[in-house]
Design a binder for these strands. Structure first.
Lengths: 147, 147
DNA sequence: ACTTTGTTGATTAGATTAGTCGGCAAAGAG
DNA sequence: CTCTTTGCCGACTAATCTAATCAACAAAGT
């Protein structure tokens, strides 16, 4: 029941890109450095996000990547689905055909409730929320250091 | 973000044992047959549950396993913790030391919320609840066939 | 004693994860 | 127009985890 590095790194990378948006695209190399992720591995992770249209990329000098939608319109559930494949705890919940017991199985019902609880959390948080939280957090920590 | 067969088979096996409780212990071989789990693999899965004291085992002829506590006192969260190791989506939530960013990281906060939502579901359901649900479900399905 | 049933440690095939590497493709800079 | 920058893509790999299997042993009834 663990998230892989794909989900963790990818989410952090997207947040980093959202935080550093400006007129110019953000360099993947810089994201990788700031987030301490291997640059080569980061390219890997970013690819499905570009294909899905969450990010837009520009090649060549002064290139990089940028969000193609407002951060407030990108849900965490969507990000994780792209990075991890799916967030279901078991396959039979969304695909009853994989197990002949599905109809009579109460453990399946429970995994369904578990998935719903997870979906509710992840649908309710957008990349924009993360950006805002990060700004608040950085400010609070800054004040703490001042005192 | 998937449960492994350990969590899935193990939960089903425990439910099966709870449903078939009587004066005599339940045979693992029978559990394995009913749940279509390899008998050899099932022994594997059952071991930590015995060590943790959820199940009691009796060896020899007429032996088997039985619940050592009332089913209503066994929470799903406990079962999964024993079978899967833990249900945390990332390690840093419960163990901030593994990452130097923990203090400043808002994605970590989100994974914490995700974990809480999962814990709430799994703490709120006991093996006794599963037994009851299964009985209701079987009855409903039986009536449906009658009509 | 004999049989049944659970216990344990070793072993294994296959899948998944977390990367790395090399070369290609586009696009701005000079 | 060609050079450099930056992303794109397919192949490859080491390490780890999963899902079993097997053989030998350990109790406990019959």
């Amino acid at each position: 029941m663990k998230l892989s590095t794909r989900g963790r790194y990818g989410t952090r990378a997207l947040l980093d890109i959202a935080l550093h948006q400006s007129e110019r695209p953000v360099l993947l190399k810089e994201v990788a450095r700031r987030q301490e992720i291997s640059p080569l591995y980061l390219e890997r992770l970013i690819t499905p996000l570009i294909t899905a249209g969450i990010l837009r990329s520009t090649r060549g000098a002064r290139g990089g990547v940028s969000l193609s939608r407002p951060a407030g319109e990108v849900r965490l559930s969507e990000i994780l689905r792209l990075l991890e494949g799916s967030i279901e705890p078991v396959e039979c919940v969304n695909n009853p055909g994989v197990c002949s017991r599905s109809g009579a199985c109460v453990t399946r019902d429970v995994w369904g409730e578990l998935q719903k609880a997870m979906d509710d959390v992840l649908n309710g948080i957008t990349l924009g929320d993360l950006v805002e939280r990060q700004r608040v957090k950085d400010q609070t920590r800054h004040i703490m250091y001042d005192i």
